[in-house]
Nucleic acid binder design. Structure first.
Lengths: 135, 135
DNA sequence: ATTGACCTTATAGTAGCTTTATAGTTTTAA
DNA sequence: TTAAAACTATAAAGCTACTATAAGGTCAAT
């Protein structure tokens, strides 16, 4: 399978596949005589794993870490679970932060309507004066 | 006021101030004979505005847009409100996406405990097999 | 006179790609 | 058969919003 086919199969760009190879997430495949990369099913599975991790919001470094655990199949999987726990709490704190932000933005927005001039805009005034309740 | 004092006053790094100047968000200040930048109170206010916008999650481009509105004080402020509305819905969709993600991660995590080997790890199996309920 | 704190510019690094440039190869259509 | 279209290759730059590093000039104090 060539790079374009693999890319289409998994819904990524060919450059992204080369990028993962360069980052050490995808093993370098064999080459044809003309230099074209040839991929096996293993590569497809590995790429699918990477993409699912990315969809879960894991960084390339975290994916790399997971892959290193997979290379030692008889170790306890404590570290895998810990990585996921950390990521979950990271996601949760992002949610909390964004919810606080939303509140601030909504209250800022409520301080204006569309019938004013920029000079009297409640939003701009709110930002300029720093009427921003922390937290 | 020199750059270091302005930086300390607003809790940013001196490089950040130069960066904003370079990006056209902060007007170039006058210089002393030795080339040192000299800031006025106006610069302080402008920088404070930028920082508050950043805390609200606005991009530098959006801040630039807001500043351009401020240059026309007698225009209606419809565009300001629209910008904020867009940003609010952006924040809301981020929250929604993260909440869905959290759900996925928690259910993935529930498929394992710490007493297994990597080979039998429910988390890794869940990612590899793609047991990832969309949405 | 020299140390330390401050200032200057320019450049590179961060994350995770995407885009562009340049060039070689293969397939398809005329 | 030839020429265009589609694919592949590498390398380098661009994106966001800074942060960090390098190499150097300026100033106050010791």
């Amino acid at each position: 399978m060539r790079i374009g086919q693999l890319a289409q199969l998994l819904g990524v760009e060919t450059q992204t596949i080369r990028f993962y190879e360069q980052q050490g997430l995808l093993p370098p495949p064999d080459r044809q005589d003309n230099g074209y990369r040839v991929y096996t099913e293993k590569h497809g599975e590995r790429l699918a794993f990477i993409r699912r991790c990315r969809i879960l919001g894991l960084s390339l470094a975290e994916i790399h870490e997971l892959q290193s655990y997979q290379d030692d199949p008889h170790q306890p999987c404590t570290a895998v679970n810990a990585l996921l726990d950390d990521h979950i709490s990271h996601v949760r704190s992002q949610i909390t932060a964004l919810q606080a932000l939303e509140k601030q933005l909504v209250s800022l927005r409520a301080s204006c309507n569309d019938d004013r001039e920029v000079e009297a805009c409640g939003v701009l005034a709110g930002i300029s004066e720093g009427n921003m309740h922390q937290q």
